[in-house]
Simulated assay, not measured.
Amino acid sequence: MSLTSVIIPTTPFEGQKPGTSGLRKKSCTLVVGGDGRYFTTQAINIIIRIAAANEVSKLIIGRRGLLSTPAVSSLIRSHKVLGE
């Protein structure tokens, strides 16, 4: 079996600037949550601090940090937030 590579040209989204780990774009609103495993509360506390330091204007966080995938999808659509 032979493997081949496919090159797909891409361009940055408007407003993105190079960062240390790729392209970055300022975000106005983030939806944050998890399923309650693997240090969700601690991770969310860190995310809050990182977001504040990077001038994120709004966070939507599930109660006690819990959000299912369908809940996140619904919040993204109802608040017109970009899902990235």
Results as ranks from 00 to 15, higher is better:
residue 33 G to Y: 03
residue 29 T to R: 09
residue 25 K to P: 00
residue 31 V to F: 10
residue 58 K to G: 00
residue 62 G to T: 12
residue 81 V to S: 09
residue 53 A to L: 02
residue 70 P to C: 01
residue 7 I to R: 14
residue 60 I to S: 06
residue 2 S to W: 07
residue 9 P to Y: 08
residue 12 P to D: 12
residue 81 V to L: 13
residue 59 L to G: 00
residue 62 G to L: 08
residue 29 T to Q: 14
residue 80 K to N: 10
residue 50 I to S: 08
residue 48 I to Q: 02
residue 11 T to W: 14
residue 34 G to Y: 11
residue 65 G to Q: 04
residue 58 K to V: 00
residue 20 T to V: 07
residue 40 T to F: 00
residue 46 I to A: 08
residue 81 V to A: 06
residue 5 S to G: 15
residue 20 T to F: 07
residue 46 I to F: 01
residue 14 E to S: 11
residue 37 R to G: 03
residue 27 S to V: 14
residue 4 T to F: 09
residue 19 G to Q: 00
residue 68 S to L: 12
residue 83 G to M: 08
residue 46 I to K: 06
residue 16 Q to M: 15
residue 46 I to Q: 11
residue 59 L to Q: 02
residue 43 A to T: 07
residue 40 T to I: 01
residue 22 G to N: 06
residue 57 S to E: 09
residue 39 F to V: 09
residue 12 P to R: 11
residue 26 K to T: 06
residue 63 R to K: 10
residue 4 T to Y: 01
residue 79 H to V: 03
residue 63 R to I: 04
residue 23 L to W: 15
residue 45 N to S: 04
residue 3 L to K: 11
residue 38 Y to H: 03
residue 49 R to W: 02
residue 37 R to E: 01
residue 25 K to I: 01
residue 62 G to R: 15
residue 50 I to L: 14
residue 43 A to V: 07
residue 41 T to G: 03
residue 46 I to G: 04
residue 25 K to F: 00
residue 83 G to T: 04
residue 80 K to I: 05
residue 36 G to N: 06
residue 81 V to G: 14
residue 17 K to S: 08
residue 39 F to K: 15
residue 38 Y to T: 00
residue 61 I to A: 05
residue 40 T to N: 01
residue 35 D to M: 06
residue 66 L to C: 13
residue 28 C to V: 09
residue 26 K to N: 12
residue 77 R to M: 09
residue 38 Y to K: 02
residue 29 T to W: 02
residue 56 V to F: 04
residue 50 I to F: 02
residue 4 T to M: 12
residue 17 K to I: 14
residue 59 L to S: 03
residue 60 I to H: 11
residue 62 G to F: 09
residue 11 T to I: 05
residue 76 I to Q: 09
residue 13 F to H: 15
residue 20 T to C: 08
residue 31 V to N: 00
residue 53 A to C: 06
residue 14 E to M: 09
residue 51 A to D: 03
residue 22 G to W: 01
residue 5 S to K: 14
residue 67 L to Y: 06
residue 78 S to C: 07
residue 15 G to L: 13
residue 6 V to F: 11
residue 64 R to N: 15
residue 3 L to R: 15
residue 73 S to V: 08
residue 23 L to N: 12
residue 62 G to S: 11
residue 18 P to I: 05
residue 5 S to V: 13
residue 2 S to Q: 13
residue 32 V to N: 02
residue 35 D to A: 06
residue 65 G to Y: 01
residue 56 V to M: 01
residue 9 P to V: 11
residue 76 I to V: 13
residue 18 P to Y: 08
residue 69 T to K: 04
residue 28 C to T: 14
residue 20 T to K: 02
residue 41 T to V: 07
residue 52 A to L: 04
residue 66 L to A: 14
residue 10 T to H: 14
residue 65 G to V: 00
residue 10 T to F: 10
residue 30 L to W: 00
residue 22 G to Q: 09
residue 83 G to P: 08
residue 50 I to A: 07
residue 9 P to T: 13
residue 83 G to V: 12
residue 49 R to Y: 07
residue 75 L to W: 00
residue 65 G to S: 05
residue 32 V to T: 06
residue 16 Q to N: 15
residue 41 T to H: 02
residue 47 I to Y: 10
residue 7 I to S: 14
residue 9 P to E: 09
residue 33 G to K: 15
residue 21 S to F: 13
residue 4 T to I: 02
residue 1 M to V: 12
residue 39 F to R: 09
residue 6 V to M: 13
residue 18 P to R: 07
residue 31 V to S: 12
residue 21 S to A: 15
residue 23 L to I: 12
residue 52 A to H: 01
residue 61 I to R: 13
residue 52 A to K: 04
residue 82 L to M: 07
residue 64 R to Y: 05
residue 44 I to Y: 01
residue 61 I to Q: 10
